[in-house]
Computed example of a mutant assay.
Amino acid sequence: MLKQRILTAVCLLPLALAGLFLLEGGGFALFTGVVVLLAAWEWTNLAALSRLSARLACTAALGLAMVLLWLGGGDRAEGLLWLGAAAWLANLYWVTHYPARQAQWATPARRLAMGLLVLLPCWVGFNSLRASGAEWLLFVLLLVWLADTGAYFAGRAFGRRKLAPAVSPGKSWEGVVGGVVATLALALGYAAWLSLGLSETLCLLVATGVVTLVSVLGDLVESMLKRTRGIKDSGVLLPGHGGVLDRIDSLTAAIPVFALLRVWL
């Protein structure tokens, strides 16, 4: 398993970095669109769709929505970012009330709607951040990685109080604090690198704290859906790593929220 994980990472990491930081405009939108559509394909499984035709149709519908947004100039629409933020508030409610409120979203149609409100704003957020400069896209990618890394080590060392035992028993509040500390250090380093003023630095610190917490929620939402579906991984597209959605679950929350905060601030 470890050998598979390493080989997959070695093969995909250069491709991912090239797509994220060398492509611009339509090429970047296409690259991120393909990633989001692969995640959408896996989401149809989380929504308990079993027929191949239904899964293909739902994935194609999201692809069509992205094409129409691109042609209409709405691929960086702030309104969709706000819609995505509202959806994450609803997801927060469902995660904190799982499984008591499971019936509110458990039907396949509602799970598909949940996926649309997660994945489409994520794609819009990618485009918005890339248009504002590669440094901010790099920042949010590093933020998610450091949040996950800090949470892992802090949770291993100090984890006592469970964060969401009904959804993901391995996560702890101490791990969340470790992730926040790591990402705030990143924000301070970024502020120094970009020579930001005091007010700009404070805004970045606030945004970083919020997005770090939201990235944890992205992970929890996917865990909740997988637990409901009775599966371990969202898919098998990445040998040793599970599915695409397993790798970008935190990003699906962090990207649109950070893009919105950047526009707003």
Rank of each mutant, 00 (worst) to 15 (best):
M1G: 08
L2C: 00
Q4R: 13
R5F: 08
R5S: 10
V10C: 08
L13F: 12
A16P: 01
A16H: 01
F21G: 06
F21D: 05
L22E: 08
E24T: 14
F28Q: 09
L30E: 03
G33M: 07
A39M: 09
A39S: 13
W41R: 15
T44C: 14
A48E: 15
L49D: 07
L52Q: 13
S53K: 14
L69S: 10
L69A: 15
G73T: 11
G73V: 10
D75M: 08
R76W: 01
R76F: 00
E78I: 13
L81P: 09
G84W: 09
G84Y: 05
A85D: 08
W88V: 12
N91H: 13
N91G: 13
L92R: 06
L92V: 01
Y93R: 13
A100G: 01
R101Y: 09
Q102N: 08
A103H: 12
A103I: 05
Q104V: 03
A106C: 10
T107L: 13
R110S: 12
G115C: 10
L116F: 14
L116H: 03
L117F: 15
V118L: 15
L119P: 07
L120F: 03
C122L: 13
C122T: 15
W123I: 11
S128F: 06
L129M: 09
L129C: 10
L129Q: 09
R130G: 04
R130A: 13
S132P: 00
S132G: 14
G133P: 09
G133L: 11
E135H: 12
W136C: 06
W136A: 05
L138E: 11
L138R: 14
A147W: 03
A147Q: 11
R156P: 00
G159S: 07
R160T: 11
L163M: 12
S168E: 09
S168G: 06
K171Q: 04
W173R: 03
W173M: 02
E174A: 08
V176E: 02
G179C: 05
G179V: 05
G179K: 04
V180C: 07
V180K: 00
T183N: 10
G189W: 03
W193V: 01
L205M: 14
V206S: 01
V211Y: 06
L213Q: 02
V214D: 02
S215V: 09
V216M: 09
L220S: 03
E222L: 10
L225G: 02
R229A: 15
S234E: 05
G235T: 08
V236C: 04
P239R: 11
G240R: 10
H241M: 12
G243V: 07
I248F: 11
S250N: 08
L251I: 05
L251P: 04
A253P: 05
I255E: 04
P256Y: 05
W264R: 12
L265E: 02
L265Y: 10
